[in-house]
Computed example of a mutant assay.
Amino acid sequence: MPIYFYVEREKPYGCFSNFSAHGFMLDELYWPTSEHYFQAQKFVGTPFLEKIRQAKQPKEAANLGRDRSLPLRLDWNQVKDGVMYRAVLQKFQTHADIRAILLSTGEELLVENSPIDNYWGCGKDGSGKNRLGQTLMEVRKILQQQSP
């Protein structure tokens, strides 16, 4: 039975959202959410990285990161999946409570039920790539191997 998630306020799987307030240290900086980290990585080596990192809310970080008037790094399409994987892995390695929720899903299919995102989510008609769900399942497999 697939597990669908989307909004960070939904219990118990809202913690799978990149907007959930589960901060972590990565690249020697503290990130309030995985959304902050992901969006900021589009601008490594520029002042925009820090502006996004300091955004008050994940929605603000997302809007800044999606601003195409800013100079997006040239290799973004090649590295974005790896960036997401690093952020999600660090988030769930940092927080035991949400790690337990992720591990409790066993082998179930995880689907980001985003009606507006056909890449990270399943999209409006369910035919999207669901890359965030796939990333969570990859991280779950790593965490299952690390569990005693």
Rank of each mutant, 00 (worst) to 15 (best):
V7G: 10
S114C: 10
E28R: 10
G65P: 04
N77F: 13
L74T: 11
K124D: 11
Y37E: 05
N118E: 13
S127M: 13
L72S: 05
E50C: 05
Q93G: 00
D117Q: 09
P32L: 07
M25G: 04
F48P: 01
Q134L: 14
N18E: 03
N18H: 00
D97W: 08
D27H: 10
Y13E: 00
K141Q: 14
R66E: 08
L109V: 11
V79M: 06
K129E: 14
E138C: 09
R140T: 00
R131S: 08
Q78E: 15
K91Y: 06
E112T: 02
L49C: 03
G82A: 11
Q146V: 01
H22V: 06
L132E: 06
M137F: 02
L26V: 09
Q90L: 04
Y85P: 02
C15F: 05
K129Y: 11
L136M: 03
N18M: 07
K91V: 03
P32E: 02
L29K: 13
I142Y: 06
G126E: 12
Y119E: 07
F19A: 02
H36K: 00
T33Y: 04
T33D: 03
R9K: 15
P71E: 07
H95V: 05
M137Y: 13
A55T: 02
Q57A: 10
Q134G: 10
A61C: 07
A96S: 15
A100Q: 15
I98W: 06
K141W: 00
T135Q: 06
F24H: 00
N118W: 11
Q78F: 11
T135R: 03
D67L: 08
G126I: 12
P148C: 10
N113T: 04
A62P: 00
S114A: 12
K59S: 15
R66P: 00
R9T: 14
Q146G: 10
H22L: 11
G133H: 07
L109K: 15
Q145F: 04
G65W: 01
G123P: 06
L26I: 12
Q39A: 07
E35D: 02
A40H: 05
D27W: 08
A40D: 04
Q78L: 11
L29E: 14
K51A: 14
Q41D: 12
L29S: 13
L29T: 03
R9I: 08
M25A: 10
A100G: 07
S20Y: 06
